[in-house]
Design a binder for these strands. Structure first.
Lengths: 219, 219
DNA sequence: GATTTTTCAGTGACAAAATCACATTTATTA
DNA sequence: TAATAAATGTGATTTTGTCACTGAAAAATC
C-alpha cells in the first residue's frame, strides 16, 4: 500500500501513532471502478471515508423522477468525507457518486475511521474542517440556484470544467452540462445556441469549445 | 444569570468544570432585541454562539437584489451554532437573522466558545453534531427547491407554521410565505387563491386559516 | 462495409413560474 | 377624518421547464 496516498490526503497522518497508521493501512481496501460506476450513500448505509487514488467522480443528488444535480466533483487525491458522515449523529443525507473516468478508490471502513475520530482530536478537527468546507460549498451552490438565472449557471459550469480540464475544448454533452447547471437538456441546447450566436462558444457533437472565456465569466 | 438556560441548551453543561462554567456565565451577554431587529453573520464577523432565551428568529440568505429566502427558524431555547461557525476553518457562509418577535438573546463570544471547543472533546462532539444537523436540514431544503414545484413548497411552509404556532390560524402575509417558499409574493397570492378555491384554506388580510391540513399535506 | 442501434442534438408547442407595472383594498397613524 | 402605509389583486410579458417528437452522428453488430 502506498503510504504517500494517506500522507497526501490527511494532514494529520504524521501525527498518528504507529498503531493507528497500521490499523488504517491494514483495513483500507482498494477498488478499481470503471467509468459510470455508481455508489450510493445515505439511509444508514455508508461505505466509509474514500480517497480518490486516481480518476474523477461526480457527487450528486437524485430527484424522485430520476434526474440528478451535481453538487461537486472529487479529483485525484481528494477525500470524500461525506461518504463517512453518516457515522455522525444528526447527519442524514442521501448522496450518489458516479465515476466520470475509470477510478482507483481507497476506502477506509466507517468503523475504522470512527475509532480514529474518537481517539484523536486532530482527526476530529480535520473532519470538522472538511465538513465545514463542504457545507460552505453547498451553501454557495444553493445561492447560485436560487439567485442566478440559467444562463449564468451554465456559464459557471463551463468555466468550472475549463478549470478542471485545463483547456478550452470541453468534452461535454448538453446532458452533462444540464446536470451541473441543474436544468433540462433542451434548455442547455437553447442557451448554448445563443452563446454560439454571441460568439462566446463553438459547438460540435459532444464538445463545447470556449472562444471568449472572459465574456462567459461576465454572464 | 439563569443556569437552566445553559443546562437546557447544552447537553454537555453538567460535564464541564466549574471554571469552564464560570467563564461562560461571566462572559455571556444578554440582549433584548425588538421584533424586526436584524443581525448579519459572515465575512469574518460573527458574534458567537447564540441562545434564544425567548422569542422567535428567522435565519435566511439574502440575494444581491435584496430578496431573501428562509433557511430555518430558531425558537425558545434553540442554539444558533452557525453564528459561531466562522471560528472554524473552512466555514465561510453569509447569513442573516431577523427577529420575528421581541427576543431575549444570550451571546457567548466567539473566543470563549472557541476556547471551550478546544479544551473539551464533548463540546467538540456537540458542535459537530449541531453543524451536521444543520447541514442535513439545508440539504433537505436544497432538495425541496430543486425538485418540488411552488405549490408544494407553499403547502410545506404553511404546515411548518402550523407546527410552530400550534393552530390552524396562521398570522402570515403573502410576503412572509413567499420568503419561506423561496418565490415571489404575487405567485403566493395566485396559488393561495387556488388553494382557497379548492377549499383547503381561507384567506383574510394578514392571515391564512387552514381548513383541510390533510389535503394540504398531499400537495 | 453496410446496417442496426444508441447517443446526442434540435425544435415546436405548451405549462409553470418569475418579473414588471400597476390598481385596489384594508389597516394605522397623524 | 384624512393621509399614509401595508397587504393584496391582476394583466402582460419573459424566462424556464416539460413533452413529444425529429434528425444527425457515432458505435456496435452483422
Amino acid at each position: 500500500m502506498n503510504m504517500d496516498l494517506f500522507n497526501n490526503a490527511f494532514p494529520f497522518w504524521e501525527s498518528l501513532t504507529e498503531t493507528q497508521r497500521t490499523e488504517i493501512v491494514n483495513n483500507t481496501t482498494r477498488n478499481l471502478c470503471e467509468k459510470k460506476t455508481r455508489l450510493h450513500f445515505g439511509g444508514g448505509e455508508c461505505a466509509g471515508v474514500q480517497i480518490i487514488g486516481s480518476g474523477r467522480a461526480r457527487v450528486f443528488i437524485t430527484s424522485p423522477g430520476g434526474g440528478d444535480i451535481t453538487l461537486f466533483r472529487l479529483l485525484d487525491g481528494d477525500v470524500s468525507i461525506l461518504s463517512a458522515a453518516c457515522m455522525l449523529n444528526g447527519m442524514d443525507i442521501e448522496l450518489d457518486m458516479e465515476m466520470e473516468t475509470d477510478c482507483e478508490i481507497y476506502t477506509i471502513p466507517k468503523k475504522v475511521y470512527r475509532k480514529l475520530y474518537d481517539e484523536s482530536g486532530v482527526v476530529k478537527d480535520y473532519t470538522m474542517e472538511m465538513i465545514s468546507e463542504k457545507f460552505s460549498d453547498i451553501m454557495w451552490l444553493f445561492n447560485q440556484f436560487v439567485f442566478s438565472n440559467v444562463a449564468s449557471r451554465i456559464a459557471g459550469a463551463l468555466l468550472e470544467h475549463r478549470a478542471i480540464e485545463g483547456g478550452d475544448e470541453l468534452k461535454l454533452t448538453h446532458e452533462d452540462i444540464a446536470k451541473d447547471a441543474g436544468t433540462a437538456r433542451e434548455v442547455v441546447t437553447r442557451i448554448l445556441k445563443q452563446f454560439q450566436a454571441d460568439g462566446v462558444v463553438k459547438l460540435t457533437r459532444g464538445k463545447v469549445t470556449l472562444i471568449d472565456a472572459g465574456r462567459l465569466g461576465k454572464i
